[in-house]
Design a protein around this nucleic acid. Structure first.
Lengths: 351, 351
DNA sequence: CTGAAAGCGCTTACAG
DNA sequence: CTGAAAGCGCTTACAG
């Protein structure tokens, strides 16, 4: 059996030097005669030398410590819970490769708490960080601090320009809105109206909600036709009562509504209204595959959920940071999650 | 910095034995006094010992050789090309972990060629195999041979019971047909007819086509209503001419067709018919995201493509075999691919 | 039944 | 500017 790869020893032999010298050249650590350097580089290139990463990991014997700065998850926030789960799961796998993952979670409604968690992250002396930069000013401060400590970081969920983040993993909220629109467009007779519902913005990331709305509207703009009339309402409280009350009024005054789109995650609240008022012919489309929504999807009160796979987001982010730390592999600058279309027939693959 | 994991040396110290003895216990290699064994096992369990996989890989210094037995890919067979690409890509990644991947590709129409490739696979003395068992009898023979040589194998695309395959990765063809049906059902007025087209079965896997058809029909059965009338036709040749000619006749005799479903991959041939005859109001749904189909999807002659992600299939299969060989990790018995819904607005994420 | 030694491929001091 | 040695955690003969 021939060896699949050349080693530094092979290179050293061929060049007539010691492995120490080869290592110096390969890592640009200087202190090598120009002629020697050239010779070694030529040989390495010729045989397509690739370092044995396992040997490297073993010898450096260092644990890569990766810090994760994301919001606390709660039942009302399935989105971040999925991130958390995905990262935990991946972290378990990476344990065998000497990776340690620590979470620094903050209250999603408190910039002060974000700063507290940031400080803890810095103090933990991690080798790399995955950060959800939800508060602009505070996140820029954190970026500066990470830069100063030479800690590479990667953003998740929200991107921030003007920082030295090595990459970003997140949803394409604009396109997500367009996909929602396209699905409604497919099923809705052109004579019916569409109701756009923005629900409890503050629970979600306002920036994403805005982008989704823009995407949703852009779809019909581009089409050059007005698929029914569209009207948008905001309902600040994400409670069954508030939603039912408000929608009752809207439906009383608009007899032609054929479809409802919910820009945030709480689509099931609107589904509850449809169920209570026994409306089975309204198309309802929303976002995010999670328990309450799925329940109504399976019972056909919701026709489609547009999915972002937040769990994958976490997994990808951690994976990218791992590859960067161990292998120097530069992540994709902006990695957008697939926008997926889920209905009652394929939802089983998403839960 | 505390060590993240206990090593065999630590266990040896604590037990007052040498690392050789610890290794013997950990690998059940016998030749160890009962009392010693118990003591070591207790300590290992107590400290939750996990072997350092990188050290193990380094010391055994063996290249895991994985053989892949799949059909040749051609332009008319994007499905297997995607598998090939996915596996190649993953193989490149795994190179750093001393994994070598060899392809053994056969003519999809020749059982004899499958046997030839099988023989080569066996002769190559691989450590594990990923096999597309497309010919039943020949595949069973191959399984027996692999069993005899103690080579673990995993099936891809098609599953075969009565073998000792460690797992299966493939599409859920039945559900895929159901999803196609559900999407048509959403967009089609109940008064219109649906045409089911089975195109050039032989190019595809006949078994999958059958399952998709069953799934498609089951959707409407379960619904308990007849969404328009459904009729099915077979077109043996996958050529523009054959398809156009046949469809012309069908449409001449049926004025009420509102939707067409194509069970195989060549949906674009039907799209060509729609384009040539300037029919813009027919809903067309098919399977597999690949160049020709995507072209017509983007131009709205095709409304939806149901995707199976064959590339992921290859990646998952190789990953599972890798985890099994290096880590002894048992793969999921039946791993079905997600059935995904793709339209012109989210197709960009699939190409 | 048990231990000591060599070696996998690499990196890190250290000596010259 | 260069080489020799130690060591990462594990496995594999080999000696006793």
């Amino acid at each position: 059996m021939t060896k699949s790869h050349i080693t530094i020893k092979d290179i050293a032999n061929e060049a007539g030097v010691s492995i120490g010298t080869v290592d110096r050249v390969l890592h640009n650590r200087g202190e090598v005669a120009e002629a020697t350097r050239k010779k070694i580089e030529t040989i390495a290139a010729q045989y397509n030398y690739k370092p044995n990463l396992m040997a490297r990991a073993l010898t450096t014997n260092r644990t890569f410590h990766i810090g994760i700065l994301i919001p606390q998850a709660s039942t009302s926030n399935n989105y971040w819970w999925s991130h958390y789960e995905g990262i935990r799961q991946k972290a378990l796998e990476l344990e065998a490769y000497a990776v340690k993952v620590s979470f620094f979670r903050f209250d999603i409604n408190s910039a002060a708490d974000f700063e507290r968690a940031s400080r803890e992250l810095i103090d933990a002396k991690v080798n790399g960080a995955v950060v959800a930069p939800l508060f602009r000013v505070e996140s820029e401060k954190l970026s500066a601090a990470l830069d100063e400590h030479n800690i590479p970081y990667l953003f998740i969920d929200t991107d921030l320009s003007n920082t030295n983040a090595i990459g970003f993993v997140g949803e394409d909220a604009y396109q997500s809105g367009r996909v929602a629109a396209s699905v409604i467009d497919f099923g809705l007779p052109t004579t019916s109206d569409i109701l756009m519902v923005n629900l409890a913005k503050d629970f979600d990331n306002a920036q994403h909600i805005t982008s989704r709305n823009q995407g949703f509207l852009s779809y019909f703009m581009d089409l050059g036709r007005n698929n029914g009339m569209r009207m948008a309402i905001d309902i600040p409280q994400a409670t069954t009562e508030a939603v039912c009350e408000r929608l009752k009024t809207v439906f009383d005054n608009n007899k032609n509504i054929g479809a409802i789109w919910v820009s945030g995650v709480h689509t099931y609240l609107v589904a509850q209204f449809l169920e209570r008022t026994a409306r089975r012919n309204i198309i309802l489309v929303g976002h995010e595959v999670y328990e309450q929504n799925v329940n109504y999807l399976q019972r056909n009160y919701i026709q489609f959920l547009i999915a972002q796979q937040p769990k994958d987001q976490g997994i990808k982010a951690l994976n990218s940071m791992f590859a960067y730390l161990t292998d120097g592999k530069q992540p994709i600058k902006q990695e957008y999650q697939k926008v997926e279309i889920v209905n009652s027939e394929n939802v089983r693959f998403y839960i």
